[in-house]
């Protein structure tokens, strides 16, 4: 089974038909579209976070805030990001309306879009 999560109407990236539609510069980076790569992307920030959190104890901030400790900005970053993402669902329920709610045509969808490979 393919490790890709392609669009249902598109051929597999690595098939000859699929490769014909890929930009030459993108071909070495097709692995970025693999599900396994997407799934394991988390290890990149995990490793980075561990390293800089440890370093935080050895290089404390020169302009510290009262709450600062070795990995305080990591805690703030994670908490802030999580709050923003978790707020999305209730906010969406509260603020989302159908498209063209105001009765004006939305952001221009170009009639003469640029050249396609197809």
């Amino acid at each position: 089974m393919s490790d890709h999560h392609d669009h249902p109407d598109m051929p597999d990236d690595y098939s000859p038909e699929g490769l014909a539609h890929i930009h030459p510069y993108a071909k070495p980076f097709l692995f970025l579209g693999k599900e396994s790569v997407k799934r394991n992307f988390i290890w990149f920030p995990v490793v980075g976070l561990i390293i800089v959190s440890i370093m935080g104890f050895f290089f404390p901030p020169k302009h510290p805030a009262p709450w600062d400790f070795g990995f305080s900005w990591a805690v703030i970053g994670f908490a802030a990001y999580t709050v923003v993402v978790l707020s999305a669902e209730p906010l969406f329920r509260l603020l989302a309306r159908e498209e063209n709610y105001y009765g004006e045509e939305e952001a221009p969808k170009l009639k003469n879009k640029g050249d396609h490979y197809e």
Partner: peptide, 15 residues
Amino acid sequence: VFQLQLLFAAMFAFA
């Protein structure tokens, strides 16, 4: 180091 903490933590939270 502290700026990278903030950014890596945000990336980790996303993933």
